[in-house]
Design a protein around this nucleic acid. Structure first.
Length: 898
RNA sequence: GCCCGGGUGGCGGAAUGGUAGACGCAGCGGACUUAAAAUCCGUUGACCUUUGGUCGUGAGGGUUCGAGUCCCUCCCUGGGCACCA
């Protein structure tokens, strides 16, 4: 048999045998528990997979293979997220049509995944652009519509001028298009939204029920942004001289000239010295009407200016506060006194009520504004001593003139001052009491606000799922009836987007012109759904992928959902995961799925980084934002002086030219070597630096496995199982069995914990141990042969998920039939795994002074007396009195002496 | 600014409060070879007065018989969010 790892000789033939025998076909056998392992839905890029992508697929494959061997029915499917902007943009660039292009790319992905031996059930594969799939995307859209969760609105949206489409809030990062980096503009175009805000609280609450990385849960909570506070009404007074405050002013409820504010710090209301409206606030129109022409013009010009600012400009760091004093006043309900009313762009129309009460003494933004416009600052909290000492001041000095310090005192500690009857209360007492007071007064109520906005889902692009809506002649929307689904995307040659916000579909009369449900002339909705709609339910379709008559059969969902282990990159922390959770909850409410949360356990793999050359900018060259060097191609770098180059570890990507493909890795080292390397090189969640020496190490390990098994083959007895329990263990048999069972215990636990690096290292350790134990074992005893046979079988079983080609090759090499995938995962016998002699540490005052060999059965008393008689330890006790002896069974003895 | 991670040999990393550095990479020495590669064996935290000892997990404190691990303060670093009231 083979005694070296020669991947070219056997890996592809095993892949063919797996395919021929339909090895990974999903089973639903009676009496076996289920396991659903899933990778994030990939968009098949033309660049193909890199070894970076493999870091996602290999670990999922290991856990799915292990689960199958452990007796589970395993669902491990793969499909392709084919609709959407990336595919369409690439097709435009290549002057081809996205449909055939995507077919070709997906086939390439599938080939590459097979090349590294991933055990997918390809019979369940689909693309989100298949009409048989998006028919049901449309059907779910209708469900959302019917439940009042999909609506069309003329809101101002984020428009990407390069992609020529509207974007969801989540797709805008720092005012730039997340995909292409173009600054987004504001445009008022009618758009479709999903009412995800209705589910905000449940999306927070149910995070408690899933086993996800805390960081991701936090990001979601952060994005949803729940905050508790008080919303109340404030009366407007158009002139300071108009009137003295009147008791009636405090009872204003629905008078025409008032506005509402939201605050999380109602306890600071006595410190309110001005109010601010967002420039877009509807009350501003009324204010302009009542202002002098000069003031109205000033307000008007400020509004125009803030409208012209992009989100990016408006959010720029350390931006000076700007605003306009409207000359109008608002009545502080706590004091009854008027405070000036401003408009300023640091208040956003999109959050809360678009208006705030400003408390400059305890809010940095309000404080900065107050300094700029020379407004009163009234402290309502006694500052903490740490604040006073940091500003080298005293309480009296601070309370007398808080404006002289550059930072505000903004914690929730301290005692209220200057707050009427509430003076002397703590933050907690004050906010509770004032909240009740506002409610009793009838001008407001305690309220919860969320930062989360509704999900903008329409795109003015061709390559997406058509929205199943038809408008009648009066423009009323109705849904397309189920029997007319899917609304198919027409095949066209020219599908380029337009600048005017209209969809390419709107220029196709055969598509647009249709009839309504009552047979009159109708006009189709021509926007398409953003790609995130398609990926919000694919994990459900995988449970029942080819049903022509329904999206899925509920029994299949009940059987397979939730996904037990969902693996993908942390960059989808908010968007995809939030949307998929939302759809699942809607479908749960409709009784169509059995789970509230789709993904029970989530794991984020680290990225693979490539060593990439950069150089300093030359004369006349400028660096982009966030860059500190200019990318150099590898060919260029080879020509340059090493001292002119800076090498950095950056994520592998085609644009960086630092990609290693699975083809290269498999050709040079082998598929199993790639799998072992990626599992071993670092903890699963951590980024890794690609290193060919490490790949060579994996090859070496596999070769040593081949050699060991080939050496042991003469001792292989396939019937070891029936004999081993009745044969007394002599010679090295016990040590061999100990190593074997220790490996089984460790590997089983490590795979479950996603600790693949220590799973591999446990196999390496066991390999070393077995190699040592069998070095001079020419004529093993009967029991040693049986122990070695157990070791061979269990080692290959445990190796199989990580290096399945090698495991199968070795299994057949020792003369066995079939696949290691069909072997039963062994159960570790704790008794066999336990050592009968242990090394016990002897410490004096917590420092290691000696180690002693003791039988595992030794009592605490025996351990203590053996430690006391250690000569090495004794020299550290000489002249001291033993105060205490601590015995940790199986570990150590610590003698405390002074 | 706020919220999460993370700082351990030359490198990647291992360690339920109990012998820090498993396993691997690189290095060094040796065997085999005409030679090299491959392979195998040994060795490899630092320092010292070397059959032994001292120091050592970003820094400083603390809890404990005992701290990489728990607590407090700080530094560095990666990521996310951010005029969100």
């Amino acid at each position: 048999m083979r005694d070296r790892y020669e991947p070219q000789a056997f890996e592809s033939s095993w892949q063919q045998k797996w395919l021929d025998s339909d090895l990974f076909r999903t089973r639903e056998d009676e009496g076996r528990p289920k396991f659903y392992g899933l990778d994030f839905f990939p968009y098949p890029s033309g660049a193909g997979l890199s070894v970076g992508h493999c870091r996602n697929y290999i670990p999922t494959d290991v856990i799915c293979r292990a689960k199958f061997m452990q007796g589970y029915n395993v669902l491990h499917p793969m499909g392709f997220d084919a609709f959407g902007l990336p595919a369409e943009n690439e097709a435009i660039k290549r002057k081809s049509h996205p449909a055939p292009m995507i077919d070709q790319y997906a086939a390439n992905y599938q080939r590459q995944m097979n090349l590294i031996g991933i055990g997918y059930d390809w019979s369940r594969e689909f693309k989100s652009s298949d009409p048989s799939y998006y028919k049901w995307t449309q059907w779910i859209f209708k469900l959302l519509y019917d439940r009042g969760l999909a609506y069309r609105s003329n809101a101002e949206v984020n428009w990407c001028p390069k992609d020529r489409t509207a974007l969801a809030n989540e797709e805008v990062v720092g005012g730039l298009c997340e995909r292409c980096g173009t600054p987004v503009e504001k445009r008022a175009i009618p758009q479709w939204f999903f009412r995800i805000t209705d589910y905000a609280q449940r999306l927070i609450d149910d995070l408690d029920d899933v086993d996800w990385p805390e960081g991701i849960k936090n990001q979601q909570r952060n994005w949803i942004g729940r905050s508790e506070g008080v919303e109340f009404q404030m009366r407007v007074q158009f002139s300071i001289a108009a009137q003295e405050p009147h008791p009636d002013d405090l009872e204003v409820v629905e008078k025409p000239h008032s506005f509402r504010v939201f605050t999380t710090r109602i306890d600071t209301i006595y410190g309110m010295t001005f109010c601010v409206l967002a420039p877009e606030h509807p009350l501003v129109a009324e204010i302009k009407k009542r202002s002098t022409p000069e003031k109205a013009a000033e307000i008007e010009s400020y509004q125009a200016k803030s409208k012209s600012l992009s989100d990016m400009d408006r959010q720029a760091d350390n931006r000076e506060k700007t605003g306009v004093n409207t000359g109008t006043f608002a009545i502080n309900p706590a004091t009854g006194k008027p405070v000036p009313l401003f408009i300023a762009d640091y208040v956003m129309m999109g959050y809360g009520t678009g208006a705030i009460m400003a408390v400059p003494a305890h809010d940095q933004r309000d404080f900065d504004f107050a300094l700029k416009f020379d407004l009163d600052v009234i402290p309502v909290f006694k500052p903490e001593s740490s604040y006073l000492s940091a500003n080298e001041t005293t309480e009296a000095e601070y309370l007398a003139n808080p404006k002289q310090f550059k930072d505000v005192f903004s914690t929730k500690e301290g005692i209220l001052v200057n707050s009427g009857e509430y003076t002397g209360m703590s933050y907690a007492q004050g906010s509770a009491a004032m909240g009740e007071w506002i409610e009793a007064l009838g001008i407001g109520e305690r309220k919860v606000n969320y930062k989360l906005r509704d999900w903008l889902i329409s795109r003015q692009r061709y390559w997406g799922c058509p929205i199943p809506i038809v408008y009648d002649k009066d423009g009323n929307a109705e849904t397309v009836s189920d029997d007319l689904l899917p609304v198919e995307l027409p095949a066209v040659d020219n599908y380029e987007p337009a600048d005017d916000g209209s969809s390419p579909l709107s220029r196709i009369p055969e598509f647009v012109n249709t009839t309504t449900n009552d047979g009159t002339l109708g006009r189709r909705e021509t926007d398409t759904l953003g790609g995130f709609a398609c990926s919000s339910w694919y994990f459900l379709r995988f449970c029942d992928p080819h049903s022509p008559d329904e999206a899925w059969n509920l029994d299949r969902i009940k059987y397979w959902m939730p996904v037990d282990c969902y693996v993908g990159g942390a960059e989808h922390a908010v968007m995809h995961l939030l949307y998929a959770r939302f759809w699942t909850k809607v479908l749960y409410d409709a009784g169509l799925v059995s789970v509230k949360e789709p993904f029970q356990r989530l794991m984020n793999q680290g990225q693979v980084l490539g060593y990439t050359p950069y150089r300093a900018p030359r004369h006349g060259e400028t660096l982009g934002v966030g860059e500190d060097g200019i990318l150099v191609s590898f060919a260029e770098a080879a020509q340059m002086d090493e001292s002119d180059l800076t090498w950095k570890w950056v994520r592998m990507s085609k644009s960086k030219g630092n990609v290693v493909t699975p083809e290269e890795a498999v050709e040079n080292y082998g598929a199993d070597a790639l799998r072992i390397y990626e599992l071993f090189v670092a903890p699963f969640e951590q980024n890794v630096q690609w290193n060919n020496d490490g790949m060579q190490g994996a090859v070496r390990f596999l070769s040593r496995v081949f050699r060991l098994i080939a050496d042991l083959k003469p001792h292989w007895n396939p019937d070891w199982r029936s004999m081993i329990a009745f044969t007394p263990m002599d010679g090295k048999a016990k040590d061999i069995r100990r190593a074997t069972h220790q490996l089984v215990a460790k590997a089983t636990d490590d795979i479950e914990r996603f600790a693949f690096n220590t799973y591999i290292s446990a196999m390496m350790t066991t390999l070393n141990t077995l190699t040592d134990l069998t070095k001079n074992l020419e004529n093993p005893t009967e029991s040693e042969k049986l122990a070695l046979s157990e070791a061979i079988e269990f080692f290959l079983t445990v190796l199989s998920p990580a290096a399945p080609h090698s495991a199968d090759e070795l299994w057949s090499g020792i003369g066995e039939q079939g696949f290691t995938y069909h072997l039963d995962w062994p159960k570790a016998d704790a008794e066999l795994a336990a050592a009968d002699e242990l090394t016990i540490a002897v410490q004096v005052n917590g420092k290691l002074r000696d180690t002693i060999q003791m039988p595992a059965s030794a009592s605490n008393e025996e351990l203590e007396s053996a430690a006391r008689s250690s000569e090495k330890a004794a020299s550290f006790i000489d002249g001291k009195t033993i105060r205490k002896v601590i015995v940790v069974p199986g570990k150590l003895v610590n003698i405390v002496a002074n």
